[in-house]
Simulated assay, not measured.
Amino acid sequence: METQDPDVVEALKASGESTLEKATAKAKKALDQLINVSLNIAVTGKTGSGKSTFVNALRGLGENAAGAAPTGVTETTMEVTMYEHPGMQNVKIWDLPGIGSPKFKAKKYLEDVKFNTYDFFIILNSERFMQDDIMLAKEIKKQKKLFYFVRSKIDNDIRAEERKKGFDEQKVLSIIKEDCQKNLKEMGDPKVFLISSFDLEKYDFETLQNTLAKELQEHKRLALLQAWPVCSTECLEKKIKMFEGLIWAVSLLSAGIAVVPVPGVSAACDVGMVVLFLTRCYYSFGLDEGSLTRLSEKVNKPHLKEMAKSKFVVAIREKALTRFQASAALATIATVKYFISLVPVVGSVAAAGISFATTWYLLKEGLNDLANTARKIKKEAGLDTISYL
């Protein structure tokens, strides 16, 4: 369909497609991958390996935060427990019961925990990987699912070695990794990731994310990148770039100029989609209260939370009833008016329905505001001074 409508021309240009029908189909797919595609992460391993603490870290929560998985020196996970990501309900992290009992049977274990539920498995151990870990990995491999060996509590090992004469952190890490790989030789040459759930910016946590991003399917990769904790400036910039690449799709659908009907999108403008997009950015960049509290406590800088006072951060935070209801709570008329009022150019145009160009502007302004706030906070926390490559 040919048209001279400037909004349509602009939308086609942004999409890289030749027709509005193709651009709309591409936009619908992109938005679905952003919001609706599920990602289910299973965390399993030896009892006492720190599974629940790792689950909390992935969700950006401290151990004492509301909704955090219970942790302790003894086994606290007695049955399969699902935890939603606080700001992205399509991402679920499953805390599985510990393995290692005398009667452990890998195949039976996978049946009991409903193996097919999960996209990949994290096999966690705070010491040497043992035969039970190998048995479980082999059974997962038979089922053609992804699994990753993660050696936890590395911070404890480093503290123990620091007291010794001639301490060399890199040498200690190499020894630990080599020892793990030696015990896993039956699996070929598996990668082993060294992590500390309390120091995500150190060791192999970033490498683990990069590996997952390479090996997961594209639509799952987007869900992973959104939900993964911000542990470095590189990670933050990848998230920002991802959202920047989706602005055109949300603009096209939200502005209501698509000729292909989109369920739930009005003919005029669905600004709730704009709000939802920016809310996703807010949580993904670690600007929610839980993530900021965890970061400020870690670096002992309480004022970090006070730095999250930009206009879009405040707009999202003030309209969120609870962290778990943010997306639904924000999709209200009051919130829409609040967001529109933040950008002077929008004003009167919004009354008749926001056009593609104006929607684009609003999304760009909101994303830049949230991204720059996150950058300032990470810089103040000292995360921009560490190389993670």
Rank of each mutant, 00 (worst) to 15 (best):
H219Q: 15
T359Q: 02
S266E: 12
D132R: 12
E162Y: 12
L370E: 03
I93C: 00
P97N: 06
D32R: 15
F104W: 03
L295C: 05
K153E: 01
V8L: 08
A137N: 04
I93W: 01
N90K: 09
D204H: 11
Y118P: 02
N36V: 09
L304V: 10
E75V: 12
G67R: 10
V345Q: 13
G188S: 04
I154K: 02
M135K: 15
M242R: 07
L278A: 02
K301I: 15
E201P: 06
E206M: 12
A223W: 02
P229Y: 00
V230S: 01
L124C: 05
G382M: 05
G353D: 03
G286K: 08
L124A: 03
E21D: 15
T3Y: 14
V172H: 12
L276S: 13
I93V: 10
N183E: 12
A249H: 03
C180G: 00
A65Y: 04
E111A: 13
L20H: 02
F324M: 11
G366C: 06
K311M: 13
P102Y: 06
E10H: 14
D119R: 03
S52G: 10
N90G: 07
V192T: 09
Q209F: 06
E63A: 12
I377M: 08
Q131P: 01
E169M: 09
K202T: 02
K177A: 09
E161H: 12
N40F: 04
K22P: 08
Q4K: 15
T77M: 04
V275T: 11
E21K: 11
F243K: 02
K191E: 15
Y203W: 10
A258Q: 08
T233I: 14
A106M: 03
L31G: 02
K378C: 13
F193A: 00
L253N: 09
W228T: 06
A258F: 03
I257T: 02
P261C: 09
G286H: 01
S18H: 13
L292R: 00
D157S: 14
P261D: 05
T211Y: 10
F198S: 12
A320M: 13
Y338I: 10
I134Q: 04
Q181Y: 05
K138Y: 07
F120E: 01
A350G: 06
I386M: 12
L389F: 11
K182P: 05
Q4P: 05
A255Q: 03
I195H: 01
V274Q: 08
P86Q: 03
D5V: 07
A320Q: 13
F54N: 06
A27N: 08
A351V: 10
A27F: 00
I158Q: 11
D95V: 06
C269R: 10
K364T: 15
G62V: 09
L216N: 00
V91D: 07
D112I: 04
